[in-house]
């Protein structure tokens, strides 16, 4: 059955921190009831990459493609293609540094985001 869905999650306005106060977002008559999120994949809209203060950078010349970083990354932000580690999805990488920590050859460095 096809149902009318809200266009996007009402509850994650682009991952930005809502303003203090009461004016952000739609009113109670316009949102789905019961706190339901009535569509899938809404986490994609929430760009948590903006939370980063340090970002991971890989030195591919040292990387052995063991994919330990891919296994441990809590945000599914290690980009892998044809079984090889390609880099990071900076839209969602929060810069937690777990990848750098678990890397057996220490080819991932955490660099400061902004000077």
């Amino acid at each position: 059955m096809k149902r009318k869905r809200s266009e996007r999650s009402e509850r994650s306005p682009k991952g930005a921190q809502p303003k203090a106060g009461r004016t952000e977002g739609k009113g109670w008559k316009e949102i789905p009831i019961a706190g339901i999120i009535d569509k899938g994949g809404t986490a994609r809209e929430y760009k948590t990459g903006s939370w980063r203060t340090f970002k991971p950078v890989v030195d591919k010349s040292k990387c052995i493609n063991c994919l330990q970083c891919w296994i441990y990354c809590p945000d599914s932000s290690i980009v892998v293609k044809d079984g090889k580690m390609e880099g990071f999805d900076y839209d969602y990488c929060k810069g937690c540094g777990i990848c750098a920590s678990v890397c057996p050859v220490k080819c991932i460095k955490m660099e400061k985001e902004a000077t």
Partner: peptide, 25 residues
């Protein structure tokens, strides 16, 4: 076909609206 999430965390920005809906119901 129409995935839905029941019971996600509902904080200061929306909880009140959902309770208002409940009161109205």
């Amino acid at each position: 076909e129409n995935p839905v999430t029941y019971g996600p965390l509902d904080l200061q920005d929306f909880y009140f609206e959902h309770k208002r809906q409940e009161a109205e119901a």
